[in-house]
Amino acid sequence: MAEQAGEQPVRSERTGDVAVVYASDYLTKLSGERVERECRRRLEEGCRALVVDFSQTGLVNSIAVSILLGVIDAANRAKAPLVFANVKDQAKQIFELLGLTRHVKLARDQQDALDMIADSNAVGFATNTKAASD
C-alpha cells in the first residue's frame, strides 16, 4: 500500500534475503500500521526473513503490540523467520507477558538477529553482504 501524503516513509533496508525494518516511534499510534505494511512489502518483494529493529523505539503501548502481532501474522503467512532486535526492557516484558515471544525471537542487536536467522538455516544468505539499501 502506498504511503499516505505527508507521512514519513518507514526506514528499512535489505541485507541479502533479509529485510531490516526500523520500528521507530510510529508504532504507538495508528501511523504504526506503516511498519506492518513495510514488512509485508519487503516479504512480497522476495525477502525470506524479517528483522524489526527497536533501537529507536521508546515505550511500547497496546497499539504497538497489536501492530506487531500483525507483523507476526504477515511473517507467519509468508513462512518467514522473524526476529526483534534491540528491544528495551519495558517492551520485552510486555512481549513476554502477552505471548509475542512465543512467535518471535528477540536478539540483542541487528547482527545477533542476522546470526540467529542464519543459524536457523531457514534461508541461505551471507550475513555481511549488503545487497541493497533504501
Binding site: 499510534k29 495508528l30 500500521e33 503501548n61 497496546s62 497499539i63 504497538a64 503490540v65 497489536s66 501492530i67 502481532l69 507476526i72 501474522d73 507477558l97 502477552l98 505471548g99 509475542l100
Partner: peptide, 18 residues
C-alpha cells in the same frame, strides 16, 4: 481512523491476534 485505533488498543491490551 477512530475505530481502527480503538481496535488496535483492544487487541494490544490482551495480546489478541485478530
Amino acid at each position: 481512523q477512530m475505530v481502527r485505533s480503538t481496535l488496535h488498543v483492544v487487541l494490544g491490551a490482551l495480546g489478541l491476534r485478530r
